[in-house]
Design a protein around this nucleic acid. Sequence first.
DNA 1: CCTTCGTTGCACACCGGTGTGCAATCTACT
DNA 2: AGTAGATTGCACACCGGTGTGCAACGAAGG
Lengths: 205, 205
Amino acid sequence: MCNNGVVPTESPRARSTNETRDRILDVALDVLGDNPDAGMGDIASAAGVVRRTVYGHFPSRLDLVRTLTERAVTEMTAVLTEADTPDAEAGATWVEFVARLWPVAHRYRVLLALRRGEYGEAIHSLLGPLDELLADLVQRGQDSDVFAQHLPAGILSQLAYGVVFAIADSDLSNGPPGARAATITSLLMLGVPETRAIALMDDQP
Amino acid sequence: MCNNGVVPTESPRARSTNETRDRILDVALDVLGDNPDAGMGDIASAAGVVRRTVYGHFPSRLDLVRTLTERAVTEMTAVLTEADTPDAEAGATWVEFVARLWPVAHRYRVLLALRRGEYGEAIHSLLGPLDELLADLVQRGQDSDVFAQHLPAGILSQLAYGVVFAIADSDLSNGPPGARAATITSLLMLGVPETRAIALMDDQP
DNA sequence: CCTTCGTTGCACACCGGTGTGCAATCTACT
DNA sequence: AGTAGATTGCACACCGGTGTGCAACGAAGG
């Protein structure tokens, strides 16, 4: 146990272990993204591993999903804080946010389907804090008359980033057209006029 | 077999049969709406009938779902044709359409969840013709510069009435606020300016 | 060398939902 | 009364996914 360096250099043994664990998580996102009802066996096969091994890392299917969700929340929260410069105009912040969110939403598109059903409760609770941050952003936009007030911020934020996931989960999920569609659609839903929305998007390509 | 009247008066025997059949369908919408993964047993119980009886009317679960979908398509198509007066402005037609569509979308909200998964293909194919009608309406709106053209009509129509179902499936699905939220949100997505959208809604309350 | 630990390949039990078979029952119609 | 048809209450087989147990293998690490 010689851990002299400042960095907690993991033993090559543990590193290999974490690699398979991460690979399982990555491939699970992929497989479940295509078929949310895929079984542990399908995930294991796709990861080049035996079903039993998956259970070695994740005692139950719920554990797998929960870990996936935690990752998603972490990444999305990071994306939001990166994009959120409190003194900036809310519309510009939103554009920045969706641009960074897009690839993440595409990776975690499975959560849209898993939100309902068995794991819905677990997922929803993990998503809670992020929802609040989002609602705050929309609220700021409404306070500064950048976003419309036809709906309360809590609901409007849900709809706006719900549609981003919906588009990320649809056929046109690939490439810039999808990202652009998601951005402008959500902006319109937030009450940003079309001309203004387009201007915002062209500011930060 | 005395069928003298002009109306094909069904024998009270067959009528009673159809009643249970219809009750199963109605209650299935309700049960599946709350839990899309509910089994045939749950539906049977809720309908005050034994599981075996359900299989008497619908040989397989797929048959049940298909029948439900066919009903939905029929009702929604009717709603669309009622609201569609080809010479009217597209925005007003859309408002009229969503207003009539709302209760139907709420009843058939389960289709949103069932769209993915096993029955997705069957549902999607049945929904095809309706999708085309919807795309046509949106196209007309775009041609007359009432709807924005940031997205092709086929995609925009999907998003616009997808959000109606999404709201009908959400918590605020009950009462006028939900219907109003769905109408204005979809209008905004279609590129109708907020002030114009509100004016349209107030025209036909 | 020998231990440790992740991985493997079986095995198994369990569960829940699906769909079927069949005799019994009840009710409406003849 | 007798019959046809819907409903019932079991029974059963089947399937697929879940989660566990255990012996064996194989490579890193002391």
